[in-house]
Design a protein around this nucleic acid. Structure first.
Lengths: 182, 182
DNA sequence: TGACAACCGGAGTGCTCACTCCGTATCTTC
DNA sequence: GAAGATACGGAGTGAGCACTCCGGTTGTCA
């Protein structure tokens, strides 16, 4: 199907571009120019467009990377001793992280649907890991039984987004109370 | 200070532009071009820029108009017989409306902080009316006493935003349960 | 109704951005 | 270490956008 493996510098540059894209889009929002990503990565624009033929594809790839990180974190918590703490801890960690990397929330929002649906394999992976975390927490009686992964994902996206607006901790506490078993 | 009142056509056009801006930005997002707003309003671009010297000012004005609508709605509910129903009803009405006018949520998000803080007088007005609704609902025992207007605004913004993502009704129910008195 | 100010329309301007192209440099293979 | 494939850099291209400018039009007031 495909001839040779890619050259070593190509691989290195691809990784650099991806990292720079994550940083730039998080700081400046998704409206940041491709040229700035190239500058940050220390490569020419041509290189960026060779690896990611379109700005949209670059955004998707950067987003997929971030979601993969989250999915890994979720998987690591699947065997935790206290499923309730694992679930709520993961939830607030995601919110907190997104608050710091200011505009990740914006990116998740703009490309949101696309990211969850078609964002490589990381989207489904995150959803599944989150589902496992949720089920275990429900099994332990820490979370009410009548909510599904979809609702939790929606709440996570919502609170991630609102984290940039201020009234963070209190609002999160309200949501957590709503999620706890009666 | 100022000489004459503005001409009648100027007033008419200003209103048309504002209405068109609200519709266009809600449908196409805030990235929609000023020219499209002008087309929709049936005026020339020059006219748009005479009334709103900058695209940002146009956005602000359109947003302020929407928030004023919401503030009016909130004020109308201040004397309702059932404060709890008024509060939760208002909350879900705002979320529902934003879901329909798809990208109002995006607009509220992007310009969010600016809108709440400096968006004319509508921002504070909304916050105050919402505060009144909240206090009355708390007085009636329908909402827990340890949440403030800031948390509710944050939750409102969050759920407004997430409404476009799908898992709407269930997620909202969770938040409402979290808001209810124990 | 005439005269003047206020207002309108929309072609034009300058800028930014995504994306292309190709001469040059670097890696890989034998 | 030489040949050939692969990848790089960055000036260049075209499209789109916010915003300006001014000749023409319309409302207003006496």
């Amino acid at each position: 199907m495909n001839g040779r493996p890619p050259r070593a510098d190509a691989l290195r540059n691809r990784a650099r571009v991806l990292e720079a894209a994550g940083a730039v889009f998080a700081e400046r929002g998704t409206a940041a120019s491709t040229e700035e990503v190239a500058r940050r990565a220390g490569v020419g624009i041509g290189t960026v467009f060779r690896h990611f033929p379109t700005k949209e594809s670059l955004l998707e790839a950067a987003l997929a990377g971030l979601m993969e990180e989250l999915a890994d974190r979720a998987r690591a918590l699947e065997d935790a001793a206290d499923p309730g703490a694992a679930f709520f801890g993961f939830f607030s960690e995601v919110v907190r992280r997104s608050a710091t990397k200011n505009a990740l929330s914006g990116a998740l929002a703009e490309a949101g649907v696309d990211a969850l649906r078609a964002g490589g394999e990381a989207g489904p992976a995150l959803k599944q890991s989150l589902g496992t975390l949720l089920e275990r927490a429900q099994g332990a009686g820490a979370v009410r039984a009548d909510v599904g992964a979809a609702e939790v994902m929606a709440l996570l996206a919502a609170m991630t987004h609102a984290a940039g607006l201020g009234g963070g901790t209190g609002a999160l506490a309200v949501v957590f109370d709503g999620l706890k078993a009666p």
